[in-house]
Amino acid sequence: MVRSWDEAINLVKERIDGTARQVGEGFPHWADPNTGIWRTTANGDWTGGYWLGMLWLISRDGGGEPYRRLAETVCARLAPRVTADTAFKAATFYYGAGLGSLLAGSESARAMGLAAANDLKQRFDPSLGLVPLGARAEEGAHVGATASSIDSLVVSLLLFWAARESGDEEMKGIATRHTSRVLALHQREDGAFIQSSKLDPKTGELLERYTHKGYGANSVWARAQAWGVLGATISCLSGGIDERLLAAATKGADWWIDHVPADGVSYWDFDDPAAPNTERDTAATAFMASTLLKLSSIAPSESLRRKYRAAAEKAATALVGSYLTPVRSDDRRPVGMLVEGCFNKREDSRPEDFINNAELIFGSYYLFEALHILSGRLRPSDV
């Protein structure tokens, strides 16, 4: 099904309206792909900020004031998580509060985002060279409170933004150290990212590197690859071009492009031997579509910029044509759902994440962001 970027944006807008009516004071986490009914969290978990990010984006359009008011109300509900001992709250507060400042000029959102960033700044561990996951990290029971993961690059997003907003050079330095350390720990020589690492809590020595959400310990989980490229790219856009970070981003992007299926939509894990008869992950693909658009604005050569833009357009075209409801003329599901997101298919996952085909709020956000860039409504550096 051929759709324009604007048509796809309008479908997602309709879904946003339906989500707002359905979730009440909860935060959408994932939705049943057949009914569109959301499973919600009460406190936002690590995904709640993406719902807010969608509201902040839509608030910029004509008639957007009701969405801005709703976003302000929802953002205020995040206050109890400002001091939570989890690195992953950075995603909640960057997309939920930082974007409120960047896109809507919200002073209350800005203040909340800065408060969360200052809390994370204090949690930086010089021995480890990074901000550890924390005792209350959403997956801390699986990998340990002082471990690290490529997902924790969301800390960099929040700290670089907050350092720029506040002029805090110490925070910028911590953000740079965290980003460099996490990338060095988790990126292989070939450009692929392994998700997690176990560190010596006293010396920071790398003891073990492994993937705990993918097919196997040494496999490349699609979302880990996306997190790595996203974190390195946005760190360059927000904190200033750092050649080491840019090299990590381009190396990771090239690996993705070389290994993703022909239609541009990734499997849930690149090393699943059942492929092509295994789950896709549209959420990871949406991550990369948005990230490749950003990377195409700062890549070190014109040929790379064209390459990344083309790959992003290919992925976005596949997502809106084959996975954004309705996908057929007889499709009676709620419109604007990005289906076939694989949250976590491993049986040792958190119960609230154990779903292998769903609409994932973070996947929907990144697609919506990519569509705004593709349509010219948003510059890559805006978020």
Rank of each mutant, 00 (worst) to 15 (best):
A162N: 12
F193N: 03
S149N: 11
F193G: 03
L183K: 02
L185R: 03
A163K: 06
S149F: 09
L153R: 09
D190S: 14
V155Q: 04
L157P: 12
K202Y: 01
D168H: 07
G191D: 05
H186A: 08
A163F: 14
G167M: 03
L159S: 03
L199A: 06
H186I: 09
E170D: 10
E170W: 00
W161N: 01
G173N: 15
I150D: 14
V143G: 01
L158T: 06
D168G: 08
A162V: 14
A175W: 07
V155G: 06
L159Y: 02
I194A: 09
G167C: 02
T203F: 00
K172G: 13
V182Y: 01
T179I: 01
L157R: 11
E165V: 15
D200R: 03
G167I: 08
D190M: 15
L199H: 04
E170M: 01
A147F: 01
T179E: 04
Q187V: 06
D168C: 06
S149V: 09
A192N: 04
G167Q: 05
H186E: 12
S149R: 09
R188I: 05
F193D: 07
P201L: 02
M171V: 14
L183V: 14
D168P: 06
S152D: 08
L183A: 07
L158A: 06
V154Q: 15
A141R: 13
D190F: 13
D200C: 08
R181I: 10
F160S: 10
V182L: 07
S156Y: 02
S180T: 07
T176F: 02
R164E: 12
L183Q: 11
R181V: 13
D200M: 02
T203W: 00
T146Y: 14
S156C: 02
K172H: 10
T179K: 05
G191K: 05
Q195P: 08
A184G: 10
I194T: 13
L157Y: 08
E170T: 05
Q195C: 05
S148G: 15
S166L: 02
S156T: 09
I174H: 12
E169N: 09
D190E: 14
H142Q: 15
D168V: 12
H142N: 11
E189A: 13
T146G: 02
A192G: 10
E170Y: 00
V155H: 01
L159K: 02
A145V: 06
S197A: 11
D151I: 09
S197L: 00
K172T: 07
T176W: 04
L183G: 04
P201S: 04
H186V: 08
V154N: 15
S166T: 12
R177P: 03
R188C: 06
E170V: 01
L158K: 05
D200E: 01
V143F: 15
A162G: 12
G173T: 03
E165N: 11
G144N: 08
L157E: 15
M171E: 06
T176M: 13
L185N: 11
S196T: 06
V182I: 10
